[in-house]
């Protein structure tokens, strides 16, 4: 911001790596805002990354995700580990603004120097969130946080996208949110490494638990493979597969949370032992590269296409004057990017 004195990116990185939280906060802002500086930051930090275990927490609004994240972070702190938290809320499509309210549920973590919480808005559309989330994860990872917890918006595609950002995905359910089964959306079931029935002291918790159990027990087990959840029938007990366990928690009181954290650690262990971690890491790398490459190519293209031509082409496609394939060819040609 122009009202601020701006230390250089290099100064910020040095300070942040030395434990300066203010510098860390500014680095995240730079990365979130994207642009030249962001690239510089990520390039500098990448060698420091790869140590954190990344946990995605997803589930419908009202399941108590923030409270669960709060309780999990406390548990990790008791085990002597540091925790970075990314809490995501939606951007208003009308104003571009956002209300980020997840911190309300994370009050007891605030004074702890071993915890860093960052609220993020979904901002851009179409994969923009996943990209920004991955970038912020990289920053927190580079800063040496042992565990990074990502709390998703809990609606739409973002719920499924978390699978490509996290090592372990926790899907949170709660009783009383309507139809027991319906609440567990298609697609979400497949990405879960661990299920949680939160608010387990509420009426209906057993029903939700059993509904989940039935769905998992009767259905084929799933293994994630190359970014896609695949349904694989596998005899029970084989350690190639991970059978997603179901936990009951009362996050407000911390009940069931130590067991949940144990399960995350077991899952981490499983990933490493089974070679799945390496697979997921290359999957994450492919994902990351894919995003960056797309953005870079798109940027390159737009730089080369004369001003206004892109918009004009869009209009022509909309008016059915040309087809989209011809339009792409045309744009590639203008940018001198067509295949030789």
């Amino acid at each position: 911001m122009n009202t601020r004195s701006a230390p250089s990116v290099e100064e910020l990185i040095t300070a942040a790596l030395a434990g300066d939280r203010r510098a860390l906060a500014r680095l995240i802002t730079i990365v979130e805002n994207d642009g030249e500086q962001a690239r510089a930051v990520l390039q500098r930090l990448y060698p420091h990354t790869g140590r954190a275990h990344i946990v995605g927490i997803t589930g419908a609004p009202g399941t108590g995700k923030s409270t669960l994240v709060n309780a999990m972070a406390r548990e990790y702190r008791q085990r002597g580990m540091t925790v970075g938290i990314i809490a995501i809320d939606p951007t208003s499509p009308f104003s571009g603004g956002a209300l980020l309210g997840d911190r309300v549920r994370m009050k007891d973590l605030v004074g702890d120097p071993g915890v860093y919480i960052r609220s993020m808005a979904t901002r851009g559309s179409l994969g923009g969130l996943a990209r920004a989330t991955d970038d912020v994860v990289l920053v927190l990872d580079a800063m040496g946080f042992d565990r990074i917890l990502i709390e998703t918006v809990g609606v739409g595609q973002a719920e499924v996208d978390i699978a490509s950002s996290a090592h372990t995905v926790i899907v949170v359910e709660a009783p009383g949110l309507g139809d027991d089964i319906q609440a567990i959306k298609a697609g979400v079931l497949e990405i879960a490494d661990i299920f949680v029935v939160n608010k387990a002291d509420r009426e209906g918790a057993d029903r939700t638990f059993m509904a989940l159990q039935t769905m998992l027990g009767l259905g084929p087990r799933t293994v994630r493979h190359h970014g896609r959840a695949m349904r694989v029938d596998m005899p029970e007990g084989t350690h190639e597969g991970w059978r997603p366990p179901i936990f009951k928690t009362v996050a407000t009181r911390g009940e069931g949370v130590p067991e949940l954290v144990d399960a995350v650690e077991q899952h981490r262990h499983f990933l490493e032992e089974s070679g799945e971690m390496a697979r997921r890491e290359s999957e994450r790398a492919a994902h990351l590269l894919d995003h960056i490459l797309r953005d870079a190519l798109m940027a390159r293209l737009l730089e080369r296409v004369p001003e206004g031509n892109f918009e004009a082409t869009v209009e022509r496609v909309a008016a059915r004057e040309i087809d989209p394939y011809a339009a792409v060819e045309h744009l590639m040609h203008e940018a001198a990017l067509e295949a030789e």
Binding site: T91, A98, G111
Partner: peptide, 21 residues
């Protein structure tokens, strides 16, 4: 809410906050 509608990202921390928090 008004700030959100003006395009700002608003982090709301809730009631009963200590100065430290």
């Amino acid at each position: 809410r008004a700030l959100r509608d003006a395009g700002f990202e608003v982090i709301y921390t809730g009631i009963r906050q200590t100065p430290e928090a």
